[in-house]
Amino acid sequence: MPPLLSHPLALRFVSFGAVLALWEYAGRAGVNAVFPSVSETALAWIALAADGSLGKALAVTLTPLVIGVVVSALAGIGIGLLMGLSRRAEWLGVPFFIVLQAAPLAAIIPMLILAYGIGLATKVAVVCVMAVPVIVLNSYKAVRHTPGSLLEMGQSFLATRPQMIAKVMLPSASPVIFAGLRLGVAAGFIGAILAELLISPTGIGDLITYHQSVADYPRMYAAIVTIIVMSLVFLEVLGKIEVSVFRPEKRASP
């Protein structure tokens, strides 16, 4: 491969560019009347950003999302660790979270509305319900699969239980825990948008539904693209946190 292309960033730009080109082509070719081209969408995005409505909508959407993701991450990793460390917690928790993970959770949103109304609490709850199961199950599996030789090593060098957890099990589990977090964050984004579409049209969900109803498709797509990009940014930040906090060896040589 030429050196320019072998850079991981270059590869990303190329694939990104290809998708954009395809989108622009499809938009211009008029695949569908409701499908705008990239350039139209970009102009719409600039207009939305300029009049401040995009910023406001993002803030509204991100509030329950960030709260939900942080709560899910803390609770999910905590519960997952507990299940990985204690047989009893495992016995209690595993069936429950496997059912939760398999269930179409959007179906319980009406139940949450009944319980918590249509405010912030419900939206946070939706994000959590979507994000927690996968985070829990990944953390649990990651801890359970700590290599036996590392455990024996810790034991033979007299690690206490808390040391073993903090210095051996957690770092060893961190790649799988973070994979779970990434899936959880993605699910959380779905939850946040679902909540806005199903509960009360606010934030980005409101931008999407409103511009759809007035047939302003470029703006509708601009809103959709914005939330997708936000999701990617979240995942990227997560990756950075993982490498800098837990796995410095991945930074040393990519």
């Binding site: 030789s149 024996e152 090593m153 051996v168 060893s172 796995r247 040393a252």
Partner: peptide, 16 residues
């Protein structure tokens, strides 16, 4: 008073 040298090294991959 005892230390073990492991056949499979048992090094922490995330530690230098």
């Amino acid at each position: 008073e005892r230390a073990f040298v492991f056949q499979d090294f048992a090094l922490l991959p995330w530690a230098n």
